[in-house]
Design a protein around this nucleic acid. Sequence first.
DNA 1: TAGGCCATCTGGTCCT
DNA 2: AGGACCAGATGGCCTA
Length: 215
Amino acid sequence: MAPHPSGVLAVRVTHESEQPFQGASDDEVTCVASAPPSPARAQGTCAEEEGGGCRGASRKLRTRRGGRSRPKSELALSKQRRSRRKKANDRERNRMHNLNSALDALRGVLPTFPDDAKLTKIETLRFAHNYIWALTQALRIADHSLCGLEPPAPPCEELGSQDGGSPGDWGSLYSPVSQAGSLSPAASLEERPGLQTPASPTGLGPGALAFSDFL
DNA sequence: TAGGCCATCTGGTCCT
DNA sequence: AGGACCAGATGGCCTA
């Protein structure tokens, strides 16, 4: 089977998600309210000031009205704020670690060559997406071949009719999204010397698929 | 040195 | 009130 005319996914990686942060070169978060460099920071400054948030005016009022909490000294307040922040940071760090663990687990089940080649996060996600799609197609084809060469009977058809691809559309083993081209870092991957193309990562046959094809 | 990738911090928002 | 989730900012490390 001719993997694909272009030999690759014919995808271009734009890395649009990785935008360099712009400006915001204020050395510190200050409470100067003039000309906020970025929305986030601007809001942050207000939050710093009142411990609530800019648009939380009504919220603030509500809590003020409550007025049940005894007044705390500035020192105690800032201490409490810092403690809360620290706890929140710990939770966030833990959350990201969990996320990374899940990502590592996903890497673990994806075929790479060499085995210890480490995909980046975005590559892992894209690879997984395309890999799943390709395996689905493989299942569909296997099912069709089991059912004979006639036009697929209804039971066979059911297996893989969700994405609208034609049953014999094996010539292009790529998910519609991949073909759209914006999801694959294949271009960048080709430039990565560590990642090479295994003969047949999926066992679909010699040269059926290249590793980079999934990306 | 520039650019990519990553970890961490941080404030905002939503939910329980 | 506190936790989860999210996105922006920032700095460090690595590679071409």
